[in-house]
Computed example of a mutant assay.
Amino acid sequence: MTKSTEYSESGSPIHRYGERQHEWRPPEYGEEKWVEKIEEHVTRYIGEIDSVYHEIISDVVHIDVFFIKPTPERNYYTLITTGMSFMPMNTPEGAEGCEYAELMICLPPDWPIQEDLENPDHYWPIRWLKMLARFPHDYDTWLGWGHTMPNGDPAEPLSQQTGMSGIILLPPIEVDEDFITLDMGDGRTVSFYAILPLYSEELDFKLKHGSDPLLDKFDEHGVNEILDLKRRNTCEDG
């Protein structure tokens, strides 16, 4: 693996990764009780798991995706990974307790989630969940609060249906606060992060000013983890 580090105007490190260098290796599977605890946690706080998008061929870690259907209380699909937390991430000094994580994304109730996944405009949320869940283990790094990733360099739109071209990881806000972390009972804790798509101006703003000023803009405009392909660009005016 090749990796170079630069620093943004806000002082945050920018890591650039080359091609993954290691060969394919058999995936890690979670302990049975570990997987059961995640399933119980998701069911308790989000809702009944309707189906699972099973990974057929895995490398490094086995990543599945839980599907939770819309309900009157949560009128949107919720997709949550299981597998990213099967291995600890390589967290730096100062990020102790952040070694284990899973990811989620919330999609509108009319998203063709199980009808036309051959269409990249419909499949990209699943692809990003799986890619990001495997990324820290592929590159011996970590992902956590406030981390961003562009869709390529230069960044391109995530799909033909939106101008957003990258993502940020944040704790979900449309959940019970107790959902955000899961104490596994053995000294390890799993954190749950939502994937929020960003416009290029928002990516640039975050690099220049940091995460907190961007989150202030999100609060001002009511941006949360429920995907809105046409939402307002909160940094359109700089």
Score class of each variant (00 low, 15 high):
L143W: 01
A155K: 04
A155Y: 06
D116K: 15
P150A: 03
D140R: 13
L203V: 09
E177P: 01
D212K: 12
N151K: 11
V190R: 06
S165A: 15
M184D: 12
T189L: 00
L132Y: 06
W111V: 10
W145R: 09
E118L: 11
D186E: 14
A194S: 08
H147S: 09
L107D: 12
E156V: 15
H122T: 12
E174R: 15
D212P: 02
K130N: 05
S211R: 14
D186F: 04
H137E: 00
P109S: 11
L182P: 05
A133E: 03
M87E: 12
I180M: 04
I173E: 12
P120H: 08
L169W: 06
S159D: 11
G163R: 12
Q160F: 03
E202I: 06
P197K: 02
T148N: 03
D116T: 14
M104K: 11
Y193F: 14
H209P: 01
L196C: 13
D178N: 15
D140M: 05
A95D: 09
K217C: 14
E96Q: 08
M131L: 11
K208S: 15
L170W: 08
M164K: 14
G166F: 07
E99I: 00
M131K: 13
D121S: 09
E96K: 08
D121F: 04
K206G: 13
L107I: 13
M89L: 00
Q161C: 10
D176T: 11
L196H: 14
A194G: 08
I167Q: 12
P150G: 04
E96H: 02
F135S: 01
P108D: 14
R134E: 11
W128E: 06
P150I: 03
I168G: 07
Q161M: 13
D212H: 10
G94C: 01
P88Q: 02
E99C: 01
P92C: 00
Q114L: 10
D216C: 11
P171M: 07
A133C: 06
T162R: 05
E201P: 03
E102W: 05
F135T: 03
D178Q: 14
F205L: 10
L117K: 12
P171W: 05
F192Y: 12
D110V: 07
V190W: 03
S159G: 14
Y199W: 11
S165F: 03
Y100S: 03
D186W: 04
G97H: 02
E115S: 11
P125A: 07
T181K: 08
L198T: 07
D140P: 00
P172A: 10
G166H: 06
E156C: 13
L129R: 01
K208V: 10
T91L: 01
Y199M: 11
G163K: 12
S200A: 14
L143M: 08
F179M: 10
L215I: 14
